[in-house]
Design a protein around this nucleic acid. Structure first.
Lengths: 197, 197
DNA sequence: TCCGGCATACCGACTGGTTAGTCTGCCGGT
DNA sequence: ACCGGCAGACTAACCAGTCGGTATGCCGGA
C-alpha cells in the first residue's frame, strides 16, 4: 500500500508519469487525451501543466527514464571483468529481461518515438546512438580477438539483436509458456550462436 | 508518365491508397487527416467516402495488400523443390527484400496496427498468424530432419527473425552502404548460422 | 436518331464532437 | 501575508464523417 506509483500516496509528478506510461502503451500517444491522464492520476490539468510543459514533455520523460536505465545497465555489463563473449551474452540477455520488465515503456518507445517533435526526436536519437555504439563495440572487440565471426558487419549484428528486443512488445505475454529469463537466455544464445566463427 | 500510381492518371481508389500509404508512413495514422489524403490524391472527401467506408478501411486495405503479397511469396518459396535449409534461407532473405521494397507499408504495419478496431485487428492477426505458422513449419521441418539445432523453440526462432525484419523500417536507409540484397543475405545468413546444430 | 431516366462518380460546405493548452483564483502551510 | 500547488471552466483549433447537389455517360424505347 505504499508503492512508488500508488494512486494517491506517491508525489503527483510520478503519478502522472505512471498513468501516462500505462495509457500511452495501451492506447497510443495520440489516442490518449490529457484529460484521461489526469483522471487516471487523480488530479486535474492544472497539476499536469504545473509540472510538465506539454503532453509531449510527458512522452519525452518516459523515454529519458528508460534510456537512462538501460544505458546504466549496459555500461555495467560491458565494463565487467569477464571474457568478451560472456559480457556480450550478459548484456544481450539483460536488455531482454529489463525490456520485458518494462514492456509498457518498450511499446511506447518503438511505436511513438516518431510523435516527438524533430528537436526532441534528435535528442532521443543521440542517446540511443550512444547505447547502440557501446553494444557494437562489444561485438567488434570479439570480432577483432577472433572469438566472433566477421562475416557480418557489427552494425548489422546490433540491429539484428535489437530487432528481436524491439519485437518483444508485439508477441511476449507474461502468461505465456516462457519466463523472462528463459526468453532472454534463448535470445542471447541465438545471438552468440550466430556469431560463432 | 503512366505508372500505376500516377498523380492523375491512375484510378481514384489507387491514388487514394497510395497517398494514404505515404502519409500514414510519414506522419502516422492519427496525425494524418482525411483532408490531407484527399488533397494528396487530388480529389475531395466525397470521392474517398464513395470508395471507402471510413478512414480505418483505408488502413486495413494497406494491410491486406501487403499481407497478400507476402503470403504468396512465402508459399512459393516454402513449396519449392530444394533442401529445407535452402528454402528457409530463400524465404528469410525474400521477406527482407520485399519489406525494404515496401518500407512504407512496413512502418505502417508495425506502428499503426493497434489503431485498427478490435474486429479488424483480429482479422489481420489471423492472416498474420497463418504467415507465421508457415514459416515456423519450415524451421520445424529442418529441426526434425536434424539440419537445424533444436536448442531453441521454433516459435522463438520465427519471432527472432521477424523482429529483425520489423526493425528494418527503423534503421534501413536506401542511401546507406548496404543494398537490399546485401542486407537480406546477411540477415538470412545470421538466421541460418544461429540454427547450425 | 433523339430523348428521358437513371446510375455512377465526384464535389465541398457543414455539423457535432473532441482536444491541447490557458487562465483565473482558491487553499493550506510557513 | 505570501506562495507553491493545484482546481476546473474556458477557448480556439481541428477533424471524421454527412449530405444535398452536380456532371457525365449509358441504355432502352419511340
Amino acid at each position: 500500500m505504499a508503492k512508488a506509483t500508488d494512486g494517491d500516496t506517491a508525489p503527483v509528478p510520478q503519478r502522472l508519469l505512471a498513468a501516462a506510461t500505462r495509457l500511452f502503451a495501451e492506447q497510443g500517444y495520440d489516442r490518449t487525451s490529457v484529460q484521461e491522464i489526469v483522471e487516471a492520476a487523480g488530479v486535474t490539468k492544472g497539476a499536469l501543466y504545473h509540472y510538465f510543459g506539454s503532453k509531449e514533455d510527458l512522452l519525452q520523460e518516459v523515454y529519458a527514464r528508460v534510456l537512462r536505465l538501460q544505458q546504466e545497465r549496459l555500461d555495467a555489463f560491458a565494463d565487467a571483468d569477464a571474457p568478451v563473449e560472456q559480457r556480450l551474452r550478459d548484456a544481450a540477455a539483460d536488455v531482454v529481461v529489463t525490456t520485458i520488465e518494462n514492456l509498457d515503456d518498450a511499446s511506447i518507445f518503438f511505436r511513438s518515438m516518431h510523435h516527438l517533435s524533430p528537436e526532441k526526436n534528435k535528442q532521443v536519437r543521440v542517446e540511443r546512438r550512444r547505447y547502440h555504439e557501446r553494444f557494437r563495440a562489444l561485438v567488434e572487440e570479439g570480432q577483432r580477438s577472433g572469438v566472433f565471426s566477421t562475416a557480418t558487419p557489427a552494425d548489422l549484428i546490433v540491429d539484428y539483436h535489437f530487432g528481436s528486443v524491439h519485437h518483444l512488445s508485439t508477441w511476449y505475454r507474461p502468461d505465456g509458456p516462457l519466463s523472462r529469463q528463459e526468453v532472454a537466455d534463448h535470445l542471447a544464445d541465438l545471438l552468440l550462436r550466430a556469431l560463432r566463427p
